[in-house]
Computed example of a mutant assay.
Amino acid sequence: MRPSTPPRHQPVRAAVVSGYALATTAGLFLLKGNSSTVLLAAAWTVGAALFAVLLRELGARRTSALAMLFTVVCQIGVIRDADTARDLLTLRQRGTEITATVVSERRDPEQGRSTRYYHYVLHRLDGTRVLGPDPTSTDDLYDVGHTVTVIEDTEGELAPLTPDQADATSNMLAALAWGLAMIGLIAWTAWRHSDAARHGRFADLLEPAPDASRTSAAPVDPPDAPHRPQDTVG
């Protein structure tokens, strides 16, 4: 039977696993959009496998697969919201506000339970088409002939959005929440499978176990026995 992880080592291992999880998430975020699908799939697979091994080192031997799947879900959430926030911040940084008119509106045909999107075509007041992909929405936001103020991407890569729609605050908070959930899982796993958790002692995770060779008490000589006077023979 393999010995359990010493309590004083669990925080260090949890910090290492947390650093690996954050580094992997950052790497996958940078690869997204700049790499092929095959490379992304390989990176996700290798990263998840190594993470499962690290979770087993924390003590999660039976639940390492489940914990790994939850971590992958958290990573997907971080990358999705961070990517959206990056696009919104880019649009605000290099875009310009213009007044446009809705000249066309269409909705996706109904296909089972798939989400149907509204697609809009926007033109400037001078009749030229607004740069970028056509804006889409799950809600019917505009009618044909409606005038709206949007931020237009000067490079034509991002779809035009209204100033309210281009606010990245909610996406940044969502990415932060996903990241905290991932770190929280690692911390809980480290605590759950520590000796301190088995004995109900939280302080053992923070303080190393005392060295028995240094803390052993020196032998103490027994106190001198009280002097009893000898009986005299009369």
Rank of each mutant, 00 (worst) to 15 (best):
35 S>L: 07
231 D>E: 15
121 V>N: 00
2 R>W: 09
144 V>N: 08
193 H>D: 06
21 A>E: 04
39 L>Q: 11
176 L>S: 14
99 T>L: 15
220 V>N: 10
14 A>W: 01
90 T>M: 06
171 N>F: 07
176 L>G: 04
125 L>E: 12
39 L>G: 07
229 P>Q: 11
39 L>E: 13
10 Q>N: 09
13 R>F: 06
182 M>P: 03
126 D>P: 06
185 L>Q: 06
122 L>V: 08
75 Q>V: 10
129 R>I: 05
149 T>S: 14
207 E>Y: 15
66 L>P: 01
51 F>N: 08
111 Q>I: 09
78 V>S: 01
45 T>I: 03
74 C>M: 12
82 A>W: 00
155 E>S: 11
77 G>R: 13
169 T>K: 13
164 D>N: 09
143 D>M: 10
203 A>G: 12
139 D>V: 15
233 V>E: 10
104 S>K: 15
93 Q>P: 02
115 T>Y: 10
129 R>W: 00
163 P>V: 02
114 S>Y: 11
228 R>E: 05
219 P>Q: 01
31 L>E: 08
142 Y>K: 09
144 V>Y: 07
83 D>A: 12
124 R>D: 05
136 T>A: 13
180 L>S: 03
185 L>P: 03
17 V>D: 00
160 P>N: 03
173 L>R: 11
153 D>F: 13
19 G>I: 02
124 R>M: 03
108 D>S: 14
120 Y>W: 01
76 I>K: 14
68 M>Q: 13
77 G>C: 06
38 V>S: 13
33 G>Q: 04
20 Y>D: 04
210 P>C: 09
110 E>A: 15
142 Y>V: 10
60 A>P: 08
110 E>V: 10
143 D>E: 15
119 H>S: 14
136 T>Q: 15
50 L>Q: 09
186 I>V: 05
76 I>E: 07
11 P>V: 00
182 M>G: 01
94 R>E: 02
134 D>G: 08
110 E>I: 08
212 A>I: 10
102 V>G: 01
185 L>G: 02
67 A>I: 04
150 V>D: 07
207 E>V: 14
65 A>F: 10
42 A>W: 04
94 R>A: 10
211 D>C: 11
